[in-house]
């Protein structure tokens, strides 16, 4: 059994078609300019391999940080209410709407060597974040965290307190409930959150270049590499872009199977 076809009014179909064109044309434009014959060669040059290594390290560590820090935060946001929680939620969403360059600048003034907290990090622990791989990780985590927290928080909210209550009445403490019920019953959403935050961290550019710069082998990630190559070696920039496009599409394909279809 299937629903009978329903005609789509032109007033809806035409703008929708423009929207599809806007989304699809850049992809087509990129693919038709891609240097397919030399793609592999370009992507395996020493410089690009360095950028791939930096990007892999930064994005994986950032995604793991999102998991470690974002999961407790999502739990608190989903399970509590009030003004403080409302303010926290705005704070969590802020990096999503903030221009990444502004985020990078803010990080510089907070965690830079002469920043509000960076000065103490430097003096007490000898930790310097700007223009280091660790700094690139901080910048990527800053922009990726909202993707993890909002994904997991909405799953926690959908589930509601019903299973927590059932676990409590079976004698489970709040911590046992978190470990034995909440985490395993949300593993699909947690995996989706990790994938989304990893993809966002991988694509991060503005905050990274502002806060961590573009030191080859240390902070020069694939998007930074693509941007810098665009002037001198556009073919390489396109090759890197095709690689990032392929990775993004793969993430979406995985998410679609595990999560988006539900």
């Amino acid at each position: 059994m299937s629903a009978p076809p329903r005609p789509t009014p032109p007033a809806i179909a035409v703008p929708a078609a423009f929207a599809v064109a806007l989304l699809a044309l850049p992809v087509v434009g990129l693919l038709q300019r891609a240097p397919w014959s030399t793609l592999l060669e370009r992507l395996t040059s020493a410089e690009i391999l360095d950028a791939i290594r930096v990007s892999a390290t930064v994005s994986v560590v950032a995604a793991l940080l999102c998991l470690a820090l974002g999961l407790p935060l999502a739990w608190i946001l989903a399970r509590h209410e009030g003004r403080t929680i409302a303010v926290l939620r705005i704070l969590v969403l802020l990096p999503m709407v903030l221009p990444p360059v502004v985020g990078g600048t803010a990080l510089l003034f907070a965690l830079g060597r002469r920043g509000l907290f960076g000065e103490w990090l430097d003096r007490w622990f000898g930790i310097t974040l700007p223009f280091t791989t660790a700094g690139a990780v901080v910048a990527a985590t800053f922009v990726a965290l909202p993707f993890f927290v909002t994904t997991v928080e909405s799953a926690l909210r959908d589930e509601g307190p019903a299973l927590d209550e059932a676990a409590a009445l079976a004698g489970a403490s709040p911590w046992q409930t978190f470990v034995h019920v909440t985490l395993p019953s949300l593993r699909g959403s947690i995996a989706a959150g990790v994938a989304l935050s990893w993809a966002r961290a991988l694509g991060e550019f503005g905050a990274t270049i502002t806060f961590a710069g573009s030191l080859g082998g240390r902070t020069r990630t694939l998007p930074v590499e693509a941007f810098l190559a665009l002037e001198q070696d556009p073919e390489t920039a396109i090759a890197v872009s095709v690689l990032l496009l392929a990775i993004s599409l793969s993430v979406l394909a995985v998410l679609r199977g595990r999560w988006l279809d539900r």
């Binding site: 019903a162 059932a166 676990a167 009445l169 079976a170 004698g171 046992q176 395993p184 019953s185």
Partner: peptide, 27 residues
């Protein structure tokens, strides 16, 4: 206190057996 909820509230990630074994495991 033990309780059987009207809307059941079984743990979706556990088998039926492990749902019922849950209280003893937590103890």
């Amino acid at each position: 206190v033990a309780m059987a909820f009207q809307d059941h509230r079984l743990f979706p990630h556990l088998s039926v057996l492990d749902n019922v074994a849950f209280p003893a495991r937590r103890r």
